[in-house]
């Protein structure tokens, strides 16, 4: 379980995360949605100890993120940020291999290699494993990064807009993979997504943020209503039920 208690973070006068308190239970997929600048990414950074908190406490699986050794946290949770403009020429296999660093400290064992091969396989990267990351398309590169955090083999997986740069096919495949990570491997996945319909179709829980505060949380059925979405996004979104999925129509 991820416990966020009164977490606060401000940049100058801007309060990015304003005393947020939330429990994210272990297992399943939790999506964080909200307009630009609502504090989604900052909240994820606080949970993953990438940014220091001004006040409050956060624990992941009982480990206080500000007090636990970074190396131990790295075996518990993995975070993938959205801006991954890597200028380095690393082969895909090497990049994914670095995901094993918390376990191997650089000396790869056969267990590490199995994890790497499996992660490459799961993201369709095996044919291009020896290519340099800077020679891949944006979508392939994004998959390589996801493979890297998968290889890290943590119970908790935090993904900040993993669908960035991905086309429809790979967006769907990535969300399906995230679903499988939760269902088959029992991981707890927290994912920031922009598209409310991906959140609706693939998550167990949705957290909706606005202006640094947690507006509401609940199942997709709770959140995917015109009233709730209006309070989050300030626009009218029609909800259609297609199959058993709720789809928000916000194009017109």
């Amino acid at each position: 379980m991820i416990r966020v208690d009164q977490a606060r973070k401000s940049f100058g006068t801007l309060v990015a995360v304003n005393d947020v308190t939330v429990d994210i239970p272990a297992g399943g997929v939790t999506s964080i949605i909200g307009p630009n600048g609502s504090g989604k990414t900052t909240l994820l950074s606080l949970i993953s100890r990438l940014a220091p908190m001004d006040s409050g406490t956060i624990s992941v699986s009982g480990l206080d993120v500000t007090a636990t050794a970074s190396r131990d946290l790295a075996k518990k949770m993995a975070i993938l940020r959205q801006e991954n403009h890597l200028t380095m020429r690393l082969s895909v296999r090497d990049l994914v291999g670095f995901g094993r660093f918390p376990h191997s400290q650089g000396r790869l064992t056969s267990v590490d290699r199995e994890h790497i091969d499996r992660a490459l396989e799961q993201l369709d990267l095996t044919p291009m494993a020896e290519k340099f990351v800077d020679e891949l398309s944006g979508g392939q590169r994004q998959r390589a990064f996801i493979a890297m955090v998968l290889a890290q083999d943590t119970d908790y997986l935090l993904l900040d807009e993993p669908l960035n740069n991905l086309d429809m096919k790979h967006s769907v495949e990535t969300m399906k993979l995230i679903r499988r990570m939760a269902d088959e491997f029992g991981k707890t996945v927290v994912v920031v997504v922009h598209d409310i319909n991906f959140a609706s179709c693939y998550s167990d829980r949705i957290l909706a943020m606005r202006d640094g505060e947690l507006m509401c949380q609940g199942t997709p059925a709770d959140i995917m209503t015109p009233d709730v979405l209006r309070t989050i996004y300030d626009i009218d979104i029609r909800i259609e039920t297609i199959g058993d999925q709720r789809i928000g129509v916000y194009f017109t």
Partner: peptide, 20 residues
């Protein structure tokens, strides 16, 4: 060498992998 490679990927990457 491995540590410098990781650092070359940025502070966030480095922290994620449990390194300072």
């Amino acid at each position: 060498a491995d540590r410098f490679t990781v650092a070359g990927m940025g502070a966030d990457f480095t922290t994620n992998l449990g390194l300072n």
